[in-house]
């Protein structure tokens, strides 16, 4: 059912936008500080996972759809992030 009054998703999306901007600045600061190591790697990759999930749920609006669609994107995200993590951790002696 369509709505013609001001959509209720604007406010949460504005908050998500501001959060995404802050998280990006955090990742940038970590990059500029040239920090490395597995804890930093997990933090930065974890931040990216949260950001993608926010875009998918709120901007794309998948949180208002059937679980199947959210599940495909989330499954893709966790698989890719999981394999990247395995590849990185495999280099730590």
């Amino acid at each position: 059912m369509e709505i013609t009054h001001k959509p209720h998703f604007i406010r949460p999306c504005t908050l998500v936008w501001l959060t995404l901007m802050s998280l990006t600045v955090t990742t940038y600061a970590i990059g500029e500080a040239n920090l490395g190591g597995w804890a930093i790697m997990l933090t930065v990759l974890g931040t990216a996972v949260i950001k993608v999930q926010m875009v998918s749920s709120y901007f794309m609006g998948l949180r208002r759809t059937r679980r199947l669609w959210r599940g495909i994107v989330l499954g893709w995200l966790l698989l890719v992030a999981g394999l990247i993590t395995i590849a990185y951790l495999s280099t730590i002696k």
Partner: peptide
Amino acid sequence: NIASGAINTLVLITSSYFVVRAVAAIKQN
């Protein structure tokens, strides 16, 4: 150049938000 990669992230995130607002606008006709 980490700064250019980061600025581009901010730029794309903001453009995505603008598109959200476009969808909201058309839902109000």
